[in-house]
Design a protein around this nucleic acid. Sequence first.
RNA 1: GCGGGUAUGGCGGAAUUGGUAGACGCGCUAGACUUAGGAUCUAGUGGAGCAAUCCAUGGGGGUUCAAGUCCCUUUACCCGCACCA
Length: 800
Amino acid sequence: MYNHNEIEKKWQNYWDENKSFEAINGGSKPKYYILIEFPYPSGTGLHIGHPRSYTALDTLARKRRMQGYNVLFPMGWDAFGLPAENYAIKNKIHPKDAVKENIAVFKNQLKNLGFSFDWSREFSTTDPDYYKWTQWQFLKFYEHGLAYKDKKTINWCLSCKVGLSNEEVEQGKCERCGGEVVKKEKEQWMLRMRRYADKLIEGLEDTNFIDRVKTAQINWIGKSEGAEVNFEVDGTDERLVVFTTRIDTIYGVTFMVLAPEHPILETLKDKINNYNEVVDYQIETAKKSEFERVELAKSKTGVRLEGIYAINPVTNTRIPIYISDYVMMGYGTGAIMAVPAHDRRDYDFAKKYNIPIIEVIKGGDIESEPYIGDGMMINSGILNGIDNKKSAIEKMISYLEESGIAKRTVNYRLQDWVFSRQRFWGEPIPMIHCDSCGWVPVPDSDLPVLLPDVASYEPTDNGESPLANMPEWYTTACPKCGKQARRETDTMPNWAGSSWYWLRYMDPNNKDYFVGRDALEYWGKVDWYNGGMEHATRHLLYARFWHRFMYDIGLVPTKEPFSIRTAHGMVLGEDGEKISKSKGNGIDPNIISDEYGADTLRTYEMFMGDYEADTAWSTNGLKGCRRFLDRLWRIQDKVINEMSLSKELEVSIHKTIKKVSDDIENMKYNTAVSSLMTLLNEYDKQDNITKGDLRVFITLLNPIAPHITEEINELQGLGPILCESKWPTYDESKIIDETFEMVVQVNGKVRGKVEVPSDATDEEMKSYALEIDNIKRYIEGRDIVKIIVVPKKLINIVIK
RNA sequence: GCGGGUAUGGCGGAAUUGGUAGACGCGCUAGACUUAGGAUCUAGUGGAGCAAUCCAUGGGGGUUCAAGUCCCUUUACCCGCACCA
């Protein structure tokens, strides 16, 4: 047993005092930038899941330093957001004080775990020195026409009284509080992220993101290629534009459906005989929450527009027009051409309202089911006889394009980014509204627009930001004309601060600029970025969008911010369930590291399972890792004063160097630890080991368990401080065994094993195999059909 | 519905990518040392069988000398998105 508390404190102090992990901008070493998602410093302290990814990337960082890189491995705080605000309201303190306390707790916990962060670059997104530049960059979006304010039907959380982006609505409920979400019209600041949809897809080619992250991003952007088709409204000059990916089915269009909010309804008001019904339905729809609209509307509802018809441009027949809430204003054009024979939703609607169903693709029985698959085109004029949708689509689109009825379009699921929040605890949007000049940006020299130090900042009842209750804050002079004007009282979303933080780490104390150009050029891309799968879509898209825009206007030198992106699995409770307060299955990392030591916790979190997969916590497993470290401690008794490697251990040591080196690169931390356990088992079997044997071992283990290894190194006088030493290399010629155990199979089943020299030829291997008694028994009196030889592995004798 | 993922002993998980299934750890069993053991050490540990052997990677087919790994099919669970036209 060793005293972990004493040893760990000692080395943590040493690293602090010697600034062991502070990165320097520049120098002759190659650079390596490792980034781990910075935490939201919640009041409950570190979660047991945090040390998993932090240790993994810390291990990489420590290894890279030993490999001679200039490593940037920073840490900071993403501290704007609702929880801090709610906590502060509840406890009647200013959020900035709450945040300060929480950061202190978090930082202390991280230090106790011995992570090699460069604390000299620490900052919080809530620091005015930082959010000044967040505001400044917002103004760049504005200058380039990418930030605009628009009336927007937004998701509105009734209980938080705050607008939410699509990304923050989960299953029709508020992501934060689980409360009811309804639609509400509001003027919101928006960023034109949609314009970057293609760039965000293409940019992925320049990255090494793990596949599931790439796929998640592509799906989220939701690119879909199709066409916009014009349908005349009979007897008017108006026309309806629809988006479709299946223009080949246009002969089957027997009606049209508009979103209830569609603007043409207002235009055609006078022609619609039952306009009052339309209005009733609109009111009905607006009242429904997103959840109701999706979940409860399994059976379709709608209203037919009496008195008006659309014209199917290929059949020239008059078709009825409906409104229904199954068509969304937010996707495509808010209007669809309905093909009931081949679309589930249109089919249900047509059945309910007795609309004709015309089959245009052969297959299935459309009396009972819409047919969705591929097949021969029928009832389709020029398309008849074509048997695959690809050519049918191509033919129809070219035909309609010629006559100006249709044009090719691409649609995206991705929406513009709603950038306004009606909250106090966020970066104020640096815009001023003047009655004569309109929206005017705050001049750079007046940045940052600071949040006020006030006692009360409860949300207003009408859903405005608390800042809207503070005339002394929002009243100001128009920067353009000097007349009295009003500051924007909305603040930025939580995601803003995390959309450029990796840039600031490169040059965190720059007073004059968001990041110095030299620092940007020096550090370039983040080489390795790790974070949770829950951020694979939104955070990562916002960050990439932000960065790409900064590239387009020449402020950063790279198109993409991150090279490698990996994602860790969750640490589940001992019961295999996701950790939650209500289940009471949480594990406190403080208690664990106090009782078992930071090295034990770190080793266990690396060992517990596949890094990318969710894994249940096991206190017994943790104890096993402590036993491993105790055994390492005890092996000191066997050390003899000799620097060369033991003959008996040499091959194993070289193999382990290779294994651990490769495993860390491939995030196979669990097998890296297990191979070290195996090696220690071998050391244990020896009567004594050399200083050299031990030095290699603790060097390999050092990135994972940095304290105990430094201590042993010092106690035994094995060499210089490990974290400043070289990573061991292996000798290819030393990892070859002189002999190997050859497996002999008969008809694919193992029937014998024999020790064979590694350099045995195929013929020699065969003769070894045929000498084994058990093999002789099997092949006696049988015909040998063939013998398969796998060099240095096995022989399979096929008999009849 | 669409997209992604997972399935291997009592448990967490290995398996060089088609070549000995179960590394390593936990747990368990027996023994040693002990006043004691929830410390440590030794041995054993997928199932059946005295054994030779047989069976076994969610289920069912297939390819192959050889399949956890490849192909087809099917089931269960997890995650993300969702009347996306």
